[in-house]
Simulated scan of single mutants.
Amino acid sequence: MRRGLPPGQQGIERLRDACTEYFQQYDVLLLPVLPIPAHEHGLTQFTINGQTVDAAHIQTATIPFNLTGLPALSMRFGTSSDGMPIGVQLAANWHCESTILHIVSLLESLSPVRDQHPTI
C-alpha cells in the first residue's frame, strides 16, 4: 500500500499497478460493456439468474478505466434475440489509443451488425 493516501486512492493505485502488470503481457483487454444486452432506459433493477440486481451493479465494467485513465472504447458487436444491442469494450495501456482503434476497425469488419444502421 502507498502510505499517506486515503484508502480509496490506495485502491485506485493498486488497480493501476495491476493494469500495468497486465499490459506488460497483453496489448488489449476485450470484455463486455454489460453482463446483459442493452436495456430500456430508466430501469433500476434487473433479474439475472433468478436474482434481483441493482442497475448500478451491472454497469461497473467501465469503472476501472474511468478510475485509472486507461484508454477504452465500447462498440456494438451483436444483437440479442429481442433486438437489443450487445456491446464489447476494449482497453489498452496508457497512450495506446491507436492500438484500440486498429483492433476496433478489425472487429467492425467482422461484426455481424456492421451493415445495420438506424432508420431516420
Rank of each mutant, 00 (worst) to 15 (best):
Y22L: 14
I36N: 03
L43K: 15
Q24W: 10
D27Q: 15
F23D: 11
I63K: 04
E97F: 10
A91F: 06
A91P: 08
L34Y: 04
C19N: 10
V28C: 04
P64F: 07
L30R: 02
G50F: 03
H57K: 13
I103E: 08
L73Q: 06
R16K: 15
H57D: 14
H95N: 12
E21C: 04
P64G: 12
T60Q: 15
P85M: 12
S109N: 11
G8T: 04
I86M: 12
F65H: 10
C96D: 15
S111L: 09
T99K: 14
E97S: 13
I63S: 02
R14M: 13
H41G: 07
L70I: 03
T119D: 09
N93G: 15
E21I: 08
G8H: 12
I103G: 01
L73P: 07
M75A: 09
D27G: 11
N49Y: 06
D82Y: 01
E108L: 11
R2V: 13
A56F: 06
L106T: 04
D27M: 11
M1Y: 09
P6K: 14
I12M: 07
C19V: 08
N93E: 14
P37G: 08
T79D: 03
A61N: 14
D115A: 12
L90G: 02
T52W: 00
T60H: 08
L70S: 05
Q25K: 15
I12N: 05
G8A: 09
R2F: 03
S105N: 13
P7I: 10
G69V: 11
F77Y: 14
A56R: 15
F65C: 07
S98L: 10
D54C: 04
G87W: 05
L101P: 00
N66T: 14
R114F: 03
H39G: 02
A91I: 02
L15K: 14
Q116W: 11
E108H: 12
T79Y: 08
L101A: 03
D27A: 14
P7D: 10
F77A: 11
H95L: 13
I103F: 09
D17Q: 12
G11E: 14
N66Q: 09
Y26W: 12
